[in-house]
Design a protein around this nucleic acid. Structure first.
Length: 592
RNA sequence: GGGGCCGUAGCUCAAUUGGUUAGAGCACUGGACUGUCGAUCCAGAGGUUGCGGGUUCGAGCCCCGUCGGCCUCGCCA
């Protein structure tokens, strides 16, 4: 139908007869002449329809409205002297329209793709096809496509084999809540959608495909966040005969390539690494944002010496007093603001309170609680934080866990509010040596920090028996700007160690056999040492595109309640369908 | 499941903090105009203030409930 796209024509094309198709972006009707901006995903081109084209063409052009779809034939012409539009790539030319055909009218849309104010997100999601016409959305989806292309090229060049794994799998214990699919053929049985292709890729290693990669859709039936969707996409890979260094090196190479091609920046490798313990100590987070300071300082030792009960009793009870110094920003924290921050960390992280010290012009620390603290101690605290006049120090006295969570939350919030970093900078790093297990106090058992197939560090094998809590894993997370962009581990390839880990996790031999007997079997048939990683593609696109929300880089995302506002999924189904699946719906509790 | 913010014209927002007939810009409809590019000018139409209840002489504004969107804690190996 068309000879060119709407972003293609330049002065070199002047004189050519062309046909363009596209959406009417804007119209400017002068009575005599009508200007149309015709838009497609390649750009915009101005069309002029003048009386010379004949009254019928002119009338038709006058009737056009935004988002009508039209075909225009005409001659590419120079714009008149001084009428060049520098804002668009095709701004030096225009089409003198001789023929206009309406391919399809549009009803008046609830919003226009070109409008300056972004409509509410609910509207954007309901009319996603209009939202996707916006230039920003087009740019993002193109970026996503190109990032995935780079990934595929990179792994192809490195001898990886792209293998598809099933979507209909089986539910496994541990981990996130599964999305379930009822089986029609097997009464009372269910498939589970994959939380990741974890087990399949390990099987591929055992099968001898020593470099596997896949861009895999994954599903987790958990509550949503700005960076979490119920279905999301991972770059999933696995390698045999490797250690953690090999995997990290492979991903370092990928990041260099992605950063160069899509950000125009040169990354230095190896990317910086930090242990989990160091990350928690310095930043209170296993995925610290390293674009700014606000490093946590532990003053438990000093706090232990005071009579001030909040500090003293916390430390005596095995807790910590930790905090960070916001350099030179004391005047930006009113009492009201500090009270608000206190409420936030109380509510969100269960902290008992937020202590603070303002550094006075003479270098002394002032605080509502400073009268409870000996002057020498105040000096020591000031030294611990390298306090200088007009600094403000925030402290949390609580368990290790709460101090980490509260200070991490506070740190991120303040850094964003105080603009302590340039949002355009990108920071890549690794966090390594995660603990093997977390202790679940409610059920008094160990839970896998990563997943139950994670190998402990060789030097920690012994501690599996003696002190599982101190046992570190061969695990590594890729962190970009404070987001977990990916994570992986070296796997257990020895069925004895695997059984031992299952034992610690309270997975009985019966459950293990029932749920992944196939893996235990496979491990006995010559499993090579192997490991891998999965990167969150949605998050990487979000970060590379400078967004703060994963929905903006997914064509058809779900709302926070996991619904699709366009299709209105999930929906009810016919009774007949339920009957075939042997499913009965419980009557919902009273109200509706 | 908990906490917070939001919901007013098709869209983005306002409404002097409880007071007369709920306004503006854009969009839409009609008209004028041959060089605009956020066209301009004139005129017009457009509202169950998400929904339900309550307090009050009087509610867009206050209270309770509910629905929806977003942020967040829990949750997410």
């Amino acid at each position: 139908m068309r000879t060119h796209t709407c972003g293609q024509l330049r002065v070199e094309n002047v004189g050519q007869e062309v046909t363009l198709c596209g959406w009417v972006d804007t119209t400017r009707d002068h009575g005599g002449a009508v200007f149309l901006d015709l838009r497609d995903r390649y750009g915009k081109t101005q069309v002029v329809v003048a009386p010379q084209s004949g009254p019928e063409v002119l009338e038709l052009a006058k009737s056009l409205r935004g988002e009508d779809v039209v075909l225009v034939r005409g001659t590419v012409s120079h714009r008149l002297e001084g009428k060049i539009n520098a804002k668009i790539a095709t701004g030096e030319i225009e089409i003198r329209g001789t023929y206009v055909e309406v391919l399809n009218r549009s009803v008046t849309p609830p919003f226009f793709p070109g409008q300056e104010e972004l409509p509410g997100e609910d509207l954007r999601l309901k009319y996603r096809y209009l939202d996707l016409r916006r230039e920003q959305m087009q740019k993002t989806l193109i970026l996503r496509s190109r990032i995935e292309k780079t990934m595929r090229d990179y792994f192809e060049e490195n001898d990886f084999i792209d293998v598809e794994t099933p979507i209909l799998g089986r539910s496994t214990p541990e981990g996130a809540r599964d999305y379930l699919v009822p089986s029609r053929v097997h009464w009372g049985h269910f498939y589970a959608l994959p939380q990741s292709p974890q087990l399949y890729k390990q099987i591929m290693m055992i099968a001898g495909y020593d470099r596997y990669v896949q861009i895999a859709r994954c599903f987790r039936d958990e509550d949503l966040r700005a960076d979490r969707q119920p279905e999301f996409t991972q770059l999933d890979l696995e390698m045999s005969f490797v250690n953690a260094e090999d995997i990290i090196g492979m991903i370092d190479g990928l990041m260099v390539r992605l950063a160069k091609e899509h950000l125009g920046i040169e990354l230095k490798t190896p990317l910086p690494r930090m242990t989990y313990d160091e990350a928690m100590r310095r930043f209170g987070s296993d995925c610290p944002d390293l674009r700014y300071g606000l490093e946590i300082v532990d003053i438990s030792a000093q706090a232990k010496k005071t009579e001030f009960r909040v500090f003293r009793e916390t430390v005596d009870a095995g807790g910590y007093v930790r905090g960070f110094n916001v350099n030179g920003r004391a005047e930006e924290f009113s009492r009201k603001r500090i009270d608000e921050l206190t409420e936030i960390i109380k509510k969100d992280f269960g902290a008992k309170g937020l202590a603070w010290f303002r550094v006075e012009p003479d270098g002394t620390l002032w605080s509502p609680i400073s009268k409870n603290l000996a002057p020498e101690l105040l000096v020591e605290i000031g030294q611990a934080f390298s306090a200088k006049p007009s600094d403000i120090i925030f402290l949390v006295a609580d368990s290790w866990d709460v101090t980490c969570k509260a200070l991490n939350g506070l740190r991120r919030r303040l850094a964003a509010e105080l603009k302590l970093y340039d949002p355009k900078t990108m920071n890549f790093s690794w966090v390594v040596e995660f603990p093997m297990f977390d202790h679940d106090p409610e059920e008094n058992r160990w839970v896998a920090m990563h997943h139950p197939f994670t190998a402990p560090r060789v030097q920690d094998f012994e501690m599996l028996n003696t002190d599982p809590g101190r046992c570190r894993a061969q695990a590594y997370d890729l962190v970009i700007n404070g987001y977990e962009a990916g994570g992986g581990t070296i796997r257990i390839h020895n069925s004895d160690i695997q059984s031992q880990v299952f034992g610690l996790l309270g997975i009985t031999p019966e459950i293990a056999r029932d749920r992944f007997g196939f893996l235990l079997d496979a491990l006995r048939f010559g499993a090579p040492p192997h490991g891998g990683i999965a990167l969150g593609i949605d998050r990487i696109v979000m970060l590379f595109g400078g967004m703060d929300n994963i929905r903006d880089c997914i064509a058809f995302p779900k709302t926070q309640k996991a619904t699709d506002m366009m299709t209105e999924a999930p929906g009810t189904v016919e009774k007949k369908q339920l009957k075939e699946l042997h499913i009965q719906i419980e009557t919902p509790p009273a109200s509706a």
